Computed example of a mutant assay.
Amino acid sequence: MIDDDGSIVTPFYFLEAAKRTRQYAMLTRTMIEQSLVMLGNRSISISLNFTVEDIRNHETVRFFKDKLSEYNAAGRVVVELIESEGIENYEEVSRFIAEIKELGCRVAIDDFGTGYSNFTHLMHLNADYLKIDGSIIKRINDDRNSELVTRTLVDFARRLGMETVAEYVHSQAVQDKVVALGVDYSQGFFLGKPEPELPES
């Protein structure tokens, strides 16, 4: 969202209000369609965040699948599941993952390492990527525990056939460390800030 003064309003400021006023599902569907419109025919991939609430909303899931087909976009979409929100109904979430992967989407477990992260999620959910939370990564170059946790997650994910993504990479020192630890991908302001337009490739 863009404020009157042109500044970007992040979801932090309006998601809870949308849920309280029962506008959340409509907002999710708008986000899905606008993202796919912006993706267009570009030869890049985009990520869309899904909560357990989104997955439980059958109309939202049906809308998502229809739009993937309409825009021929499934092979260029990564669905990020927010691990910190508590994935409890494995059957329901696993079915959603299987269905969208059959369409061609890839799946990431987002923000792993926040709160009481559950390794059982990684074993039950057939995800492609594990995104290591920024609260761990941002201190990795000067905190031994953060380094050990990251090393463990990289090894565990690799054994499950998942690739890893380091969030909140904000300096060359952090980037060098995650590369040394074998993390597959990085994201963060050191590599680039969010832009209003998508690149062509």
Rank of each mutant, 00 (worst) to 15 (best):
S117R: 06
A98T: 07
G192Y: 11
I46K: 10
E91P: 00
T51Q: 01
V93P: 08
D66K: 15
D110K: 05
E85Q: 15
E147Y: 12
L191C: 10
L153Q: 05
Y90N: 03
G134Y: 04
D143Y: 06
D110Y: 08
S84A: 08
M31N: 07
A127M: 06
D3V: 00
L160I: 06
L103T: 08
H124L: 12
G161N: 05
R144K: 10
S146N: 12
H124C: 13
M26E: 13
T30H: 07
A74D: 11
Q34R: 15
S117C: 07
S45T: 12
D128L: 05
D5V: 11
I87K: 10
H170V: 02
E195P: 00
E59I: 11
S47G: 14
R159C: 05
S94Q: 08
S35Q: 03
L15W: 00
S84H: 04
K131H: 10
G86P: 06
E92R: 05
E59T: 10
V61N: 07
E16R: 11
K177C: 07
T21K: 09
E85L: 13
T60R: 02
G192W: 09
M38C: 03
I137P: 05
T164K: 05
D4Y: 09
G113P: 06
V37N: 05
N72Q: 14
T21W: 06
S43H: 13
S146G: 14
K138D: 01
V178Q: 01
C105K: 02
I32F: 11
S186R: 05
N72W: 08
E70R: 14
R144P: 00
Y185W: 13
T120C: 02
K177H: 01
V169H: 02
R151D: 11
L198H: 14
G86C: 02
E83R: 06
K19A: 08
D110R: 03
